[in-house]
């Protein structure tokens, strides 16, 4: 049996975090390993919970969140999705020698599909 995908949810604002949790709630293959309110706690939470994926906030679309670099430098195998609360899209980040990114629609289907397809793959867009 394949093991569950471990996801750490660290979105802001609170409404977006709760709605991301709602999107993952009924997925039998996804396990929420933690919920982080403050970006400053993300790294410590990653160290503690060992997620496969971290879902964070994208405050300035077009600019990679600093926490993305911090996490991927220490955990290059980590996958990150940054969701812009007020925009149509989110961005998937992964590391392979350097940090790459790929735009994903900010929809339940696209985010779940990215989490499932990328957890055990090489990282790049399929």
């Amino acid at each position: 049996m394949e093991k569950n995908i471990r996801v750490l949810v660290a979105n802001r604002p609170r409404l977006m975090r709760e709605l991301v949790l709602e999107a993952f709630a009924d997925q039998p293959d996804i396990e929420i390993v933690g919920e982080v309110v403050d970006d400053a706690e993300i790294l410590a939470s990653v160290e503690r919970t060992h997620p496969d994926f971290v879902v964070i906030a994208l405050e300035n679309p077009g600019r990679r969140p600093t926490i993305c670099d911090t996490v991927l430098r220490q955990y290059p195998e980590m996958r990150i999705i940054a969701v812009a609360p007020n925009h149509k899209y989110s961005v998937y980040y992964w590391a392979s020698l350097k940090i790459h990114s790929h735009d994903v629609e900010a929809s339940e289907e696209s985010i779940l599909s990215t989490v499932r397809n990328k957890t055990h793959s090489a990282g790049g867009p399929s």
Binding site: M16, L19, E22, A23, N86, H87, K88, A106, E108, I111
Partner: peptide, 12 residues
């Protein structure tokens, strides 16, 4: 603007 927000809030 955000479809995820619309979908999940709609479900709630």
């Amino acid at each position: 603007e955000n479809r995820l927000l619309r979908e999940t809030l709609s479900r709630l």
